[in-house]
Computed example of a mutant assay.
Amino acid sequence: MASVAKRKRTKVVNSPDEGQNCQRVTVGSTYFTKASGSDEKKDVTPAKLSKVTLGTTLTSDNVVQGGGDVVERLTADFYNQSTVNLAKALLGQKLVHRLSSGKRVAGIIVETEAYCGLVDKAAHSYNGKRTARTEAMFMKPGTAYVYSIYGLYCCMNISSQGEGCAVLLRAIEPVEGKDQMRQLRTNSAKSPTKPLKEHQLGNGPSKICMALGIKKEEVNRLDLTVSKDVWLEKGDNSQPIVISKRINISYGEDWVDKPLRFYLLDNKCVSVRDKEAENLLRKL
């Protein structure tokens, strides 16, 4: 997956819709959405969208053991939100995989991309494309969508509200089982490589799957709210969020420059930084 060396400055771009039957309205550098036929507008500027309330509660269904501590597992209510909001809400949450050995490997999600379903020309489900491969994108929010690329690697997404909508996980910060993650990355390498630094273990979509041992045949279509193998635990979602365009979607036509990539400011594990967007955020 090639990185983008230089980004073109885009002064103003429309924000993604938060749901069906919405119109996009741009006023200056502020993004708004409004329901069709309504004059009511909702401010969804980057500053307003940088914090999300999780609203989950502790029950016997969402409490799991983590590293000797009782931690909160994210429930169906968390995933049941628009693609853009879920992409932001996932930042700071912990992605956990319990390996066949019983050991946990986990990382904090630090970068995501939103794929907005049938209207999104960069989404696998664009124009209603529903196949065996994309079926998970049409399943209940909180379903894992794992697909293979180049026949060699896998990428993990999580379904959200909206038909064919899902969030791509782009990068994680390793926090549990780092030695195991390093070994998994080594085992996945096609040829001998130099020892990886910690921030390199999961700084890319396919690297996440390699580091956490996530395989399409085992994880695709799993319900993350009940799975005993892969799930998410509540983390810190209060850090500043950088908003930028998505990576490697040149085929997306007029969706190429839409601000649908989100990452934690100043996190070393992010796959590709957008310094211009970071500077704009710091000025807010």
Rank of each mutant, 00 (worst) to 15 (best):
K228E: 15
R130D: 07
G107H: 04
V44D: 13
E163F: 14
W231D: 03
H97A: 12
G128V: 03
I208P: 02
H199P: 05
P195C: 12
K197A: 13
K178T: 06
D61R: 11
I172K: 02
T10V: 11
N267T: 07
A144L: 00
Y263D: 06
E135V: 10
D120N: 10
K140S: 12
K48W: 08
E111D: 04
E217R: 14
E18G: 15
C155E: 10
R98A: 00
H199Q: 13
D223H: 05
S244P: 04
D17S: 14
Q161I: 08
V96E: 06
T57R: 07
R261E: 01
G164Y: 07
G37I: 02
M139Y: 00
Y150H: 07
G28Y: 11
A144C: 03
D179C: 00
T33K: 11
T10C: 02
S191A: 13
N237R: 14
A144M: 00
R185L: 07
V96M: 07
E278V: 08
I247K: 10
V105M: 02
S148E: 09
A122S: 15
E18L: 15
Q65A: 14
T45Q: 07
Y31L: 15
S160I: 06
R282I: 15
G68D: 13
Q81E: 10
A87T: 12
K34V: 00
K178G: 03
L222R: 04
A122V: 10
A35F: 09
N14P: 01
K178F: 01
S82W: 09
K283H: 15
V70N: 09
